[in-house]
Amino acid sequence: MPLLVPPAPKPALRSALAALASPTAVRDPRTPALRSAAGSLIPELPLPVHILDRVTKGQGTPRTRLAGWRFLVRSGEHAVAAAETMLTPDGWAFSHFFEGPYVTSTELALRQAEALPGSYQPRLLSVPELYMLTLWLHEDPTADAAKGTPAPSDLLVPLAPAPPGIAAHRAHRVSDLLPVLTLRLAANPLMGLGTPAMGSPA
């Protein structure tokens, strides 16, 4: 069943479109694919980026917080970059473009998820202490995409590159994967120092 992609806040989309129309933003040295792309650059497949706060054994329901909205930027048939937006005191604003393996990995994971039975709302869930990003398939496709925590029956699909010992592009139930992440985090209490401001690997 097709995924039900949630609509992004209109100001977030407008900020991404404005950045794509800005020669200065598109010509950033970090985004050679955007500089060399021929034809239109289209932001699509908006995904809310949630951060998994530190979890500990016996804590119960994990806590998450919304960090921003990410758009895959398509040129032709494939995504070549992503546009990140963030919430500021003045509302949603463009943050940065980036390229790299998580762009391709996200696109692949979304295609794989469309073949799964049932209906899900796609989100991104970042575990910054493990430098890990997952496609979070929320079981309630009509939920407010900016809120909520992973339900035990939700699915998490680690994106490549995944941490050692965790299979990328394999769907795991939250109830199965969360204990593994909890043990990983508990094994190294110094993890998480100096994590990225947005809380999500790029």
Rank of each mutant, 00 (worst) to 15 (best):
H172Q: 06
P150F: 03
P6V: 00
A37C: 15
R14C: 12
G58F: 06
G39I: 06
R35H: 12
A197Q: 10
R173H: 13
M86C: 10
T182F: 05
P189G: 12
A151C: 08
G91D: 06
A16C: 12
Q112N: 10
M132F: 10
L133T: 02
M86G: 08
R63Y: 07
P7M: 05
A8Y: 03
R27M: 14
D90A: 14
P152Y: 12
P128S: 13
S95I: 00
L125C: 07
A171D: 11
R74W: 07
W92L: 02
P150W: 00
T64D: 11
E44S: 07
V55C: 13
R74P: 01
A113E: 03
P89I: 12
R30W: 14
Q59I: 07
S36L: 15
A115W: 06
R30K: 15
L108T: 14
P62M: 12
T61D: 15
L156I: 02
K147G: 08
M86Q: 13
A115L: 14
G39S: 11
A83L: 04
V80D: 04
H50Y: 08
L124A: 02
G100A: 11
P161V: 11
P201T: 14
A160L: 13
A82R: 00
T31L: 03
L17D: 03
A113I: 02
P9T: 11
P117C: 12
A143L: 06
D176G: 12
K10S: 15
H169W: 10
F98R: 13
V103Y: 01
M86S: 09
A160C: 10
E107L: 06
R74E: 05
L124Y: 00
Q112V: 13
L20K: 04
R184I: 08
K57W: 09
L3Y: 03
G148D: 04
G194E: 07
S36F: 09
A151N: 11
L20Q: 00
L193M: 12
L34E: 02
D140N: 10
T85L: 11
F71G: 02
H50W: 02
A162V: 07
A109C: 07
S105D: 04
A109E: 00
L130F: 12
A113S: 15
A25V: 06
P141A: 09
P141K: 00
L159V: 11
V127Q: 01
G76K: 09
L34C: 09
S40K: 13
D140C: 01
S95W: 04
L181M: 14
L72S: 05
R65P: 03
F94T: 02
F98Y: 15
M132V: 04
Y131D: 11
A79C: 15
A81I: 08
T149D: 14
G100M: 04
R123N: 04
H50F: 06
T134C: 15
R63G: 06
P163M: 10
L133H: 04
D28P: 03
P29Y: 08
R35L: 14
T85K: 04
P43K: 04
L3G: 02
L66R: 05
P46V: 09
L137C: 02
P196G: 07
A186N: 07
R65D: 12
G68H: 01
L133R: 04
H78P: 07
A67R: 01
P122N: 08
